[in-house]
Amino acid sequence: MAYKPQFGPGTSKVAENRRKQMNPKQKLEKMRDVTDEDIVLLLGHRAPGAAYPTAHPPLAEQQEPDCPIRKIVTPTEGAKAGDRVRYIQFADSMFFAPCQPYQRTYTEMYRFRGIDPGTLSGRQIVECRERDLEKYSKELIETELLDAARTGIRGATVHGHSLRLAENGMMFDMLQRSVLGEDGIVRYVKNQIGEPLDRAVAIGKPLDEKWLKDHTTIFHSLGGTAYRDDKEYIEYVQRIHSLRTKYGFMPKE
């Protein structure tokens, strides 16, 4: 029988949302339009329109060693061109942000190629070749993985994911990269590392509370789905924990 990935355990809505994001066959809902130039501005790695700086000559121009793995793996566009490795980093509020660090890493690993994600408690960074990064960033920003108010594109100084929200519903950001305008649209006025942008980049309106609670991938006992209520999830995690703990003693179930 062919292997069919299950993506994750759980019977709750949160578990279902997690599986949906991870499953590469499920198309992520597009929530907003951000232009390619806007993405380049937000990332802040190169000026819009500038050529991609390279770390090595294009693969076609250099002698490749005779390696069986290189024959199996097709290089990504960025790797082919010899782009530098660059990053995008997100901070997700614990108040029902649509995604969160571990979930982001799982999702990206299932959906993207040639990436190196780094997962921390409050932020998640993904590194890859610049050309690929811009393509992936566009998907991460335009789809349901991002909420304008509760997800921050923050390369540095990420503090805020576990804090109270501000009066207007925005996640705290000591550099205030994004500002909620009078018209209800969130605009980035600084790039991800906190340098002011020449023009503001609009990323749309924050999503409403009901949508966020329906689409969140965070268990939250206050106002959301409590982790302890998903018996299947608990059972699975306890099983893994028990097997890991007993590993050295040859576990037998």
């Binding site: 100084t157 000591m174 002011p196």
Partner: peptide, 22 residues
């Protein structure tokens, strides 16, 4: 409450001014 620094404290933009409306 959480501090709002006058300059960017970490990262590549460290030391640059941090205009913050609050």
């Amino acid at each position: 409450g959480p501090s709002i620094p006058t300059t960017v404290p970490y990262g590549p933009a460290r030391g640059k001014p941090n205009p913050h409306p609050d």
